[in-house]
């Protein structure tokens, strides 16, 4: 079976002849987490807005399962592809968190029982029990972001697009988002995140797609892609700091196949142990 989300030869030209994407090909299968990376203005948002039909291809096609995104309304596609906007203020308008969570489900016409059940599920997931009656605008930005994400997850879309989810989040917020992404992956969802947060990408240890000037520069496991220094330079990207550190320490026997702080610690212990063994042998 072919991949659930397929982008075929996608080109997008904005009014005013601004070519934002050029001949992008991409296949994303179930249970995959994909980070879309690139500098500001490279075309990341333009790419992911095609997934729920907010933008229609100038050339090429986007397939969501057996639906051609060109031929369906955003409202319809959004039941399959949830899109969490960067600024949650843009979607918030109801007087309580609970109503916000219900809203999307009501739009797709679910029955009361199912809605209840889903609202409970996302409430638990984000631990929103205490603020269900609160007005979303009285929450801090981390909580508001979580409500925004929860209200999309309640629709239970197969694909979830997160546009810069950790930007402006405090540490706890970022951690929770990371946990949620991992959980969604395990449940077989597709998660696509647009981000500048390299540490997050490292810790998710996911597939990355690098976009530069509207073209796909690289596509593969973060560990592999981040080794291509020339490509990263062209896309103005910096790998996670800990990876750079490991690379600087290869002469001490550190393996540069390191992506997270935890791996680095393990690697350090391994090298240290070798070192001690060597010292013992020589003495």
């Amino acid at each position: 079976m072919s991949a659930f989300l397929r982008v075929e030869n996608l080109t997008h030209i904005y009014p005013g002849k601004i070519k934002a994407l050029e001949s992008i090909n991409l296949e994303i299968g179930e249970g995959e987490v994909v980070a879309v990376l690139g500098r500001n203005g490279s075309g990341k948002t333009t790419l992911v807005k095609h997934f729920n039909g907010l933008l229609k291809p100038t050339k090429g096609n986007v397939w969501i399962g057996d639906m051609n995104a060109k031929k369906h309304s955003v409202a319809k596609l959004s039941a399959k592809v949830g899109y969490v906007f960067q600024n949650s203020n843009h979607q918030t308008f109801l007087p309580s968190v609970e109503q916000e969570l219900r809203y999307g489900c009501e739009n797709i016409g679910l029955d009361e029982e199912t809605i209840q059940e889903r609202v409970e599920r996302v409430t638990e997931l984000f631990q929103l029990e205490d603020i269900l009656e609160t007005n979303p605008f009285d929450l801090n930005s981390t909580q508001r972001k979580e409500v925004g994400m929860a209200s999309i997850l309640a629709i239970e879309p197969k694909v979830i697009v997160l546009d810069e989810p950790t930007t402006g989040q405090d540490h706890a917020g970022s951690e929770r988002i990371k946990e949620v992404i991992t959980m969604l992956k395990e449940q077989g969802h597709i998660v696509i995140l647009v981000t500048h947060d390299m540490q997050l990408v490292g810790e998710l240890d996911c597939r990355v797609v690098v976009i530069s000037n509207g073209k796909k520069l690289a596509d593969g496991a973060a560990r592999e892609v981040f080794k291509d220094k020339a490509m990263l330079k062209e896309a103005s990207l910096e790998p996670p700091q800990v990876m750079t550190l490991a690379e600087q320490l290869t002469s001490f026997g550190v393996n540069d196949h390191v992506l997270t702080v935890e791996e680095m610690i393990k690697e350090y212990k391994r090298v240290k142990k070798l070192d001690i063994n060597k010292q013992l042998q020589t003495s």
């Binding site: 955003v74 409202a75 600024n87 979607q91």
Partner: peptide
């Protein structure tokens, strides 16, 4: 511009603007 973004954000929550 803001209005456009909001419109998109609501469509993404299955609001059928058409």
């Amino acid at each position: 511009r803001e209005a456009k973004v909001i419109m998109e954000a609501q469509q993404a929550r299955c609001l059928d603007v058409k």
